[in-house]
């Protein structure tokens, strides 16, 4: 089986997994107390015409399996339902918050991966040195502190105390941009967004980098004792070539496998961080929707999240197929 067959297979599996995931999400939120139909029936703020139209469109008076069919049909058409709390389609609500989450997550992920892998390789290369020991200590220390606690600490330090001590510079503690900044020019706006992004991103990224580089370090240290490294040296390669051509790629393999895992962690982290920093992303929106029983929104958010996670996994598997021939040629 070549690479193409391998990718096709993975795509197929990912599609199946996605289908299963949305099915679970659907049924989960129809069996719990306070199901959507009741809510629509009792919510006075929804105007009766609109209510009827919604009940009709989503078949909320129909039996569950029929609702499921309707749900699938609507999903296929890109309709995730209507958030009765925000009074607009779920797709719009998510569409508003998703870019922020993607900005946060995407940037963090890329930084994690790139810096983490290279830092890991570097400390592995210098194993036993002071730098390495320092790294190990930092990793263990930082890992022992819960993420949102770090977040709160950062807010207290860089947003509150900094101002209290009268330093000229501080970071905002909430929001993704200054109110009214949409009228500013491109660059001032970009700077504003980055300024708001700085604290949550840092908190999220430090943990990620440490995790990734820790993993990478362990792998590389193992790989460097392999026989083929000796062979590479005997060919006349210099140390850099040995490291990057032979050791690096092998060490990176398990790291890639771990991407799926780290995406789950990242999303979890994002929910926490967005909550702590009042960042207007999907994560914060999700928990607001939850405590206020806005089921269509919750459902929509879960679908998006599982979609993203599966996408990440899929990409990881495909990358794995590219770098590890044993996987795809078996």
């Amino acid at each position: 089986m070549g690479l193409r067959g391998y990718i096709a297979k993975k795509l197929f599996f990912a599609a199946v997994a996605f289908f299963v995931a949305i099915t679970i999400v659907f049924f989960l939120y129809h069996v719990i107390p306070g199901n959507p139909a009741n809510i629509f029936a009792t919510d006075r703020t929804v105007n009766p015409d609109q209510r009827d139209a919604l009940l009709e469109r989503w078949g909320l008076n129909e039996p569950l399996w029929k609702q499921y069919g309707i749900f699938l049909r609507n999903l296929f058409q890109g309709d995730l339902g209507f958030s009765y709390l925000q009074k607009m389609p779920v797709t719009d609500v998510i569409g508003e918050s998703l870019p922020w989450t993607l900005l946060l997550l995407g940037t963090s992920f890329v930084l994690n991966a790139v810096i983490g892998i290279f830092l890991g390789a570097f400390v592995a290369w210098r194993r036993g040195s002071k730098l390495d020991t320092g790294f190990v200590l930092t990793y263990n220390f930082y890992n022992a502190i819960p993420l949102f606690f770090v977040g709160m600490l950062f807010i207290a330090l860089f947003s509150f105390y900094v101002r209290k001590w009268g330093w000229g510079f501080y970071f905002p503690a909430y929001g993704a941009q200054t109110a009214g900044s949409s009228e500013w020019g491109f660059f001032p706006r970009l700077v504003d967004i980055l300024w708001h992004l700085a604290l949550p991103l840092t908190v999220l990224t430090i943990a990620g980098i440490l995790g990734w580089s820790w993993f990478m370090r362990g792998n590389l240290i193992n790989i460097l004792t392999e026989d083929y490294i000796k062979t590479a040296r005997a060919k006349g390669l210099n140390e850099n070539q040995v490291l990057y051509k032979h050791a690096f790629r092998n060490a990176i393999l398990p790291v890639v496998t771990n991407i799926g895992m780290s995406i789950g962690g990242l999303i979890g982290g994002a929910v926490l961080i967005e909550t702590v920093f009042s960042y207007p992303g999907t994560g914060r929106m999700l928990y607001e929707a939850l405590i206020r029983h806005d089921y269509p929104l919750v459902q929509g958010a879960f679908i998006i999240i599982s979609g993203l996670t599966l996408l990440g996994l899929l990409i990881a598997e495909i990358i794995y197929g590219f770098i590890d021939p044993r996987i795809r040629t078996e």
Binding site: E226, D227, Y228, T231, G236, K245, H246, R249, D324
Partner: peptide
């Protein structure tokens, strides 16, 4: 060390004990 590198693999080459692991699994 640099001069030795130009000798290794070029003038004097070595086949190591334990062939099963002496090839890098991810390169052709």
């Amino acid at each position: 060390e640099a001069e030795m590198r130009s000798i290794r693999g070029n003038h004097i080459s070595m086949v190591f004990q334990g062939a099963m692991n002496a090839l890098n699994p991810v390169h052709r």
